[in-house]
């Protein structure tokens, strides 16, 4: 029981850091996946006086992934019933050319603005429709979501740091006496701090294992998967190799840092 109590406080503190870190990673991945969805449905329309080569359009701004000329046939078809065929051909020649530009990524409002001015700088392009109002609203929502998640992560981090500082004081008190006594019999620093580092490593392993279990469960939970399906994104919630290594690395670094601070702050009993 005593042994469980010894581990409990640091394990809980570490677990909350690991949990908030992984939630932040999942949120980041969701946003990125959502941006991919958005960019597939978002395009800019450019109107040109004359025909433009696709390669020419691509050179205007490197955010442009592809350009497709929109066919005017459907519009002309509607008008052609009342017109002679010679006039229809004339209309085809004089009609401006419409290009649908797809982008490499979901742009920021600034990037949309730059793209628009770059396009308008071309002497042939007379008008650009960037659907900026719809874009900005969606982008702001995404940004809000990202900021809320970041804020949540920061708050959890601050609370956890406070918990760890408290734990550090308790550990300092608990281990100082033993370290001093060992020092009186000539124990080298590594031997004096061995128990402390062993405890820190065991706690990091326990916290990592618990975090691993929680996220393995969440990543296969039908309810969680359904929520992601509902918003139309498909992401890796928990990567068993990369995320596990990251979790283990962070837990080990924090607990070893904690143990090192105690060793460095240790004052020999006179």
């Amino acid at each position: 029981m005593k042994s469980v109590r010894n581990h409990f406080s640091l394990v809980i503190a570490l677990l909350s850091i690991l949990f908030s870190m992984q939630v932040f990673l999942i949120a980041e991945r969701s946003i990125e996946a959502y941006k991919v969805n958005l960019v597939q449905n978002y395009s800019v329309i450019a109107v040109s006086k004359k025909h433009l080569e696709i390669s020419e359009i691509l050179k205007i701004n490197n955010i442009i992934a592809d350009a497709k000329e929109l066919s005017p046939d459907s519009v002309i078809e509607r008008l052609s019933s009342d017109m002679r065929s010679a006039n229809v051909e004339l209309l085809k020649l004089t009609m401006p050319k419409f290009y649908k530009l797809s982008l490499t990524r979901y742009p920021t409002p600034g990037e949309v603005k730059n793209l628009k001015s770059d396009l308008l700088r071309s002497s042939s392009i007379t008008k650009v429709e960037d659907f900026s109002h719809t874009h900005d609203t969606t982008y702001k929502l995404l940004l809000l979501f990202k900021n809320v998640v970041a804020l949540f992560a920061i708050v959890v981090l601050i609370v956890t740091i406070l918990l760890i500082i408290k734990e550090l004081r308790i550990w300092q008190y608990k281990h100082n006496e033993r370290m001093s006594i060992m020092g009186l019999f000539g124990a080298a620093l590594w031997l004096r701090s061995a128990v402390l580092f062993r405890l820190a490593i065991v706690d990091a392993l326990i916290a990592s294992f618990l975090a691993f279990g929680i996220f393995i469960y969440l990543s296969s939970s039908p309810w969680v998967l359904e929520q992601f399906n509902n918003i139309g994104i498909n992401i890796v919630i928990f990567n068993k190799v990369d995320d596990s290594l990251l979790i283990l690395g962070v837990a080990m670094s924090i607990s070893i840092l904690l143990a090192s601070l105690i060793v460095l702050g240790h004052k020999e009993e006179a």
Partner: peptide
């Protein structure tokens, strides 16, 4: 510190 540890191992 190292020399002191060495000494203390004999005390």
């Amino acid at each position: 510190r190292a020399r002191l540890n060495f000494l203390r191992r004999h005390i």
